[in-house]
Computed example of a mutant assay.
Amino acid sequence: MMKRRRSRQLSSEERRLWAHVARDVKPMKGKMLPPEPEPEERPSTAPAPTIVLPSSPPPRPVAKPALTPLAPVERKTLQALRRGTRTVDSVIDLHGMRQTEAHFALFGFLHRAQESGQVIVLVITGKGGPSSSHSLFDERGVLRRMVPHWLRLPELRSVVVGFEEASPQHGGSGALYVRLRRRRGAG
């Protein structure tokens, strides 16, 4: 046998608040809103609260400007990299690292590369292969999926202009060409 909980009665303040909220609600078909409770007489010893309404609407919060999308690496640069007439300025190999280790290594590498004036770097993530155990929790190719997300983060917008999948001789889908922004004050 289940015991029924006794419902407590709403105070007059709670009923007034609910009536204020429900004022803008359209009742379901066949139902009616409860009547708005009468304001309660307050003893004269307690001063009535004064509500000051602003004369103008409050200022809207200033929206942050939207981040501009990353630009792809230029077609001429990609062709030169594929033909071997242009080389990458630096390489970092992340595969085999744990996610947090790779994250810090990538951020540090990109900042150092930008500081030294490098323009195109190669980030090797590895392709991730089929899982040796068929467990649902054995995830493969995590860095391959995560590095593009990291490169799009607002913290790297001052460093990264854009990125593209590398050509097969540089790792193909297991690597990315990353174009770096020129550092401020350089040049």
Score class of each variant (00 low, 15 high):
Asp24Phe: 15
Leu33Trp: 01
Thr68Lys: 14
Leu10Arg: 13
His149Ser: 06
Lys64Asp: 11
Val178Leu: 02
Leu151Asp: 01
Leu156Val: 00
Val121Tyr: 05
Asp89Leu: 04
Gln99Asn: 10
Leu136Phe: 10
Thr45Cys: 08
Pro65Thr: 04
His149Met: 11
Glu41Leu: 13
Arg112Asn: 05
Lys3Gln: 15
Lys29Cys: 03
Gly185Phe: 07
Arg182Ala: 13
Ser158Asn: 14
Pro27Glu: 10
Val91Lys: 09
Ala113Phe: 09
Ser12Gly: 06
Pro69Val: 00
Leu67Phe: 02
Gln114Thr: 01
Ser131Gln: 08
Leu81Pro: 05
Phe163Lys: 05
Gly171Cys: 03
Val178Thr: 07
Ser44Cys: 04
Leu136Val: 07
Leu33Pro: 01
Pro37Gln: 13
Ile92Gln: 04
Val62Glu: 12
Gly174Ile: 05
Arg75Pro: 03
Val91Ala: 05
Ser116Ile: 08
Ala48Gly: 05
Gly128Ile: 11
Ala71His: 05
Ile124Trp: 00
Glu155Ser: 14
His111Arg: 15
Arg86Gln: 14
Arg42Asp: 07
Leu67Met: 10
Leu94Trp: 06
Ala71Lys: 14
Val91Gln: 10
Val25Gly: 06
Pro130Ile: 11
Trp150Asp: 00
Leu10Trp: 14
Trp150Glu: 00
Pro54Ala: 11
Leu136Glu: 08
Val142Asp: 01
Gln9Asn: 07
Val25Ser: 09
Pro43Phe: 11
Val161Asn: 01
Arg23Ile: 00
Pro54Leu: 14
Ser167Leu: 02
Phe107Thr: 09
His20Lys: 14
Leu151Pro: 01
Met146Pro: 00
Gly117Arg: 10
Arg157Gln: 09
Phe107Tyr: 13
Arg152Met: 09
Lys26His: 10
Leu110Glu: 02
Arg184Val: 10
Glu165Ile: 12
Val159Gln: 02
His149Leu: 13
Glu115Val: 10
Val161Arg: 13
Ala22Val: 08
Gly84Cys: 06
Glu13Ile: 11
Val121Leu: 05
Met97Lys: 13
Ser116Pro: 00
Gln169Ala: 12
